[in-house]
């Protein structure tokens, strides 16, 4: 009963055979299916989501079914089965960011853009999503636009960011670090020892 499916659009990798071969070559022969996640990334990077048609294509490439691809894809929170905006704005909402005002930040963005969590603007430029911890707790709150982190986004910076995005520009990244992440030499104690126990 299993028959090969006929495609209705040009396969994604039809003109990207080299890229496809490179991705497949990253994994040992016994692990062809491992290429599924990078292939999903590849499709999503270009099309901003992965359609069922693409799922079927990828299934054929890695030797499984579209169902399995959908099962895998839907498990992970950063693959999308609907197109996201040109600027996919993700606001971390987990504890350290919440303590730095991420809820208020999110509401601000929501007002500015006129969309709620999970929505995309009608013109397809912005989508807004609350996400869980993205590993920027020391530089909270953090806004991730597509693949770029904007850290320690206070009110001023947030306005600046949103203004730039509305102009269609991703502003230059400011690198925020703390602790030893300013270079160990600079990270000397701010205070004298408060508790140096006997060695």
């Amino acid at each position: 009963m299993n028959e090969t499916h006929t495609h209705t659009q040009t396969p994604f990798f039809a003109d990207k055979q080299e890229k496809l071969a490179e991705i497949l070559s990253r994994y040992p022969a016994e692990g062809r299916r491992s290429a599924l996640m990078p292939l999903l990334w590849e499709v999503q990077r270009e099309e901003r989501y992965v359609s069922e048609e693409r799922m079927r294509e990828l299934a054929e490439i890695v030797g499984t079914t579209a169902t399995e691809v959908k099962g895998v894809m839907s498990f992970y929170s950063t693959y999308h089965d609907q197109p996201v905006g040109t600027f996919h704005i993700q606001v971390c909402s987990t504890l350290s960011c919440a303590l730095a005002g991420s809820d208020e930040l999110f509401d601000f963005l929501s007002n500015e853009l006129g969309i709620v969590n999970g929505e995309t603007t009608a013109d397809g430029r912005f989508s807004l999503q609350k996400v869980e911890c993205v590993g920027s707790c020391g530089t909270a709150p953090v806004v991730q636009v597509n693949d770029t982190y904007f850290e320690r986004v206070g009110r001023g910076r947030c306005q600046h960011l949103v203004d730039a995005l509305k102009q269609g520009e991703l502003p230059p990244v400011w690198r925020e670090r703390g602790g030893d992440t300013v270079g160990a030499a600079k990270a000397e104690p701010l205070q004298k020892p408060t508790d140096v126990r006997e060695g």
């Binding site: 530089t139 670090r177 602790g179 030893d180 992440t181 104690p189 205070q191 508790d195 140096v196």
Partner: peptide, 20 residues
Amino acid sequence: RTGVYEMPMGATFRELIYDF
């Protein structure tokens, strides 16, 4: 000053939170 600090194991929370 939030961030990452490399410290010997056995340093106290106080040392991390207050001194660094």
